[in-house]
Deep mutational scan, measured.
Amino acid sequence: KRPMNAFMVWAKDERRKILQAFPDMHNSNISKILGSRWKSMSNQEKQPYYEEQARLSKIHLEKYPNYK
């Protein structure tokens, strides 16, 4: 399994927050909201998630050096 990208790292927690506020919301609607919110974020706001992506990718590479 591939490591999560920056959007997926961010969306994991955000999806949970949306589901708590709107438990009956369909997954497709949540995904649209998440995509819209991510697009509206500045690069500075996204930076911690890109850093986490890099950390996860490094761990993945160490654990699975032959993964293609």
Rank of each mutant, 00 (worst) to 15 (best):
K1G: 11
R2S: 13
R2D: 15
R2L: 14
R2F: 11
R2I: 14
R2G: 12
R2H: 15
P3K: 15
P3F: 03
M4S: 11
N5V: 03
N5W: 02
N5Q: 06
A6F: 00
A6H: 00
F7W: 02
F7S: 01
F7C: 01
F7N: 02
F7V: 01
F7G: 01
M8P: 02
M8S: 14
M8E: 15
M8L: 08
M8R: 10
V9I: 15
V9T: 06
V9L: 15
V9N: 05
W10L: 00
W10R: 02
W10F: 10
W10P: 05
W10A: 01
A11V: 03
A11Y: 02
A11T: 00
A11L: 03
K12I: 08
K12G: 08
D13F: 01
D13C: 00
D13A: 03
D13L: 02
D13Q: 04
E14D: 02
E14F: 15
E14K: 11
E14N: 06
E14T: 09
R15K: 12
R15D: 01
R15I: 14
R16S: 12
R16W: 06
R16T: 14
R16K: 14
R16D: 12
K17Q: 03
K17W: 00
K17A: 07
I18W: 00
I18Y: 05
I18F: 03
I18C: 03
I18Q: 00
L19G: 03
L19A: 12
L19V: 11
L19H: 10
Q20I: 06
Q20M: 10
Q20V: 06
A21G: 05
A21H: 11
A21L: 08
F22A: 08
F22W: 11
F22L: 06
F22R: 11
F22C: 12
P23W: 00
P23Q: 02
P23Y: 03
D24A: 07
D24K: 10
D24L: 05
D24Q: 07
D24V: 01
M25I: 07
M25L: 07
M25V: 04
M25F: 03
M25R: 01
H26M: 13
H26Y: 04
H26G: 15
H26V: 09
N27D: 15
N27P: 15
N27Q: 13
N27K: 12
N27T: 08
N27R: 09
N27C: 12
S28R: 09
S28V: 09
N29T: 14
N29G: 11
N29K: 15
N29I: 13
I30Y: 00
I30T: 01
S31Y: 11
S31C: 10
K32R: 09
K32W: 05
K32V: 09
K32Y: 06
I33K: 07
I33T: 04
I33S: 02
I33L: 12
L34V: 01
L34A: 00
L34W: 00
L34N: 01
G35Y: 13
G35S: 14
G35D: 15
S36T: 14
S36V: 11
W38A: 02
W38N: 00
W38C: 01
K39T: 03
K39R: 13
K39G: 05
S40I: 06
S40D: 10
S40Q: 10
S40R: 10
S40A: 11
S40K: 06
S40M: 06
M41D: 02
M41T: 01
S42C: 04
S42K: 10
S42G: 06
S42W: 01
N43I: 09
N43W: 13
N43Q: 13
N43E: 15
N43P: 15
N43F: 06
N43S: 12
Q44E: 15
E45Y: 00
E45L: 06
K46Q: 01
K46H: 05
K46W: 00
K46R: 06
Q47G: 06
Q47H: 06
Q47K: 10
Q47I: 07
P48D: 05
P48R: 04
Y49V: 01
Y49T: 03
Y49N: 03
Y49M: 00
Y49L: 02
Y50R: 06
Y50S: 03
Y50C: 04
Y50L: 08
Y50K: 09
E51R: 05
E51F: 02
E51I: 03
E51H: 06
E52L: 03
E52T: 03
E52D: 05
E52A: 08
E52N: 02
Q53S: 15
Q53L: 11
Q53F: 13
Q53V: 15
Q53E: 15
Q53T: 10
A54N: 08
A54L: 06
A54R: 11
A54H: 09
A54S: 09
A54W: 06
A54M: 08
R55C: 04
R55Q: 03
R55S: 07
R55F: 03
R55T: 06
L56C: 05
L56Q: 10
L56R: 07
L56D: 06
L56F: 05
L56M: 12
S57L: 13
S57N: 13
S57R: 11
S57W: 07
S57F: 08
K58C: 07
K58G: 11
I59Q: 11
I59L: 11
I59D: 13
I59E: 15
H60K: 09
H60S: 12
L61F: 09
L61S: 13
L61G: 13
L61Q: 14
L61T: 12
L61H: 13
E62T: 08
E62N: 10
K63P: 09
K63L: 08
K63S: 12
K63Q: 14
Y64Q: 13
Y64T: 12
Y64I: 14
P65K: 12
P65Q: 12
P65L: 09
P65T: 09
N66T: 09
K68G: 11
K68V: 06
